[in-house]
């Protein structure tokens, strides 16, 4: 009788997934992918505003990450931080290419996420979302990144600091400045705050 010598692969969990993926374990790849794909896609989608481009860049992020995973050094930083950095760089390249080709600005035609689980007042909110997206995309890339990580991923300042390679204090300050900049952009493009609405009514 031949005894089976096949090694039983270890159970993949959040702690060992990266190391197992580095050794070529496909289950670990799956695990990391499942854990991160939606959040990376969302981040990219809100930065580029097009479903097609978001899919393209998301694919590139994961191909690049898994292709270079052997070079990945675990410094105690979450794996997602590495993915976000790759995404951030690819988005920067994407914007650079668009500017070179002089395509229509995203500020003019923001694509509204059609799969968003919006409340019933979707139609009322649509215009608000359009203006918000327009305002966000007019901000500097790092400010956009911070706002999206904060509100889409619901991350704390400490977590964002790890992803962006800054201190928690720096993130706190950048966050405040980003909100002020966003408010100014929103007012510039015609967004009415409760305060300005009140003044008009008076």
């Amino acid at each position: 009788m031949v005894k089976g010598r096949a090694k039983k692969s270890p159970e993949v969990n959040a702690e060992n997934a990266v190391n197992l993926a580095r050794s070529g374990n496909s289950e670990a790849f799956s695990f990391l992918y499942n854990q991160n794909v939606n959040r990376i896609y969302n981040y990219i989608f809100y930065r580029v505003g097009s479903e097609h481009d978001a899919e393209d860049i998301t694919s590139r992020v994961f191909y690049r990450a898994f292709g270079h995973i052997k070079k990945y050094e675990d410094k105690g930083v979450p794996f997602s931080a590495w993915l976000y950095r790759i995404a951030h760089n690819l988005i920067a390249n994407w914007h650079r290419d668009r500017h070179r080709r002089k395509e229509v600005s995203l500020d003019d035609q923001p694509e509204i996420p059609h799969r968003v689980d919006l409340p019933e007042t979707w139609i009322e909110k649509k215009q608000e979302l359009e203006l918000l997206l327009r305002g966000i995309r007019r901000l500097a890339p790092e400010r956009q990144q911070l706002i999206l990580l904060k509100f889409l991923d619901d991350l704390s300042n400490a977590e964002i600091a790890v992803i962006m390679g800054r201190t928690e204090g720096a993130i706190k300050s950048l966050y405040h400045r980003s909100l002020i900049a966003l408010k100014d952009e929103m007012l510039r493009i015609g967004y009415e705050t409760v305060e300005t609405k009140g003044k008009k009514n008076d």
């Binding site: 479903e51 899919e55 999206l148």
Partner: peptide, 26 residues
């Protein structure tokens, strides 16, 4: 921002196809 910025659901076909392709890499 917290009311309006909601996560989107990516196309499941895209997600599954990409996963298959990535896992086939090894």
């Amino acid at each position: 921002l917290s009311k309006v910025l909601k996560p989107v659901k990516p196309d499941t076909v895209f997600i599954d196809t990409l996963k298959t392709k990535l896992i086939q890499i090894p």
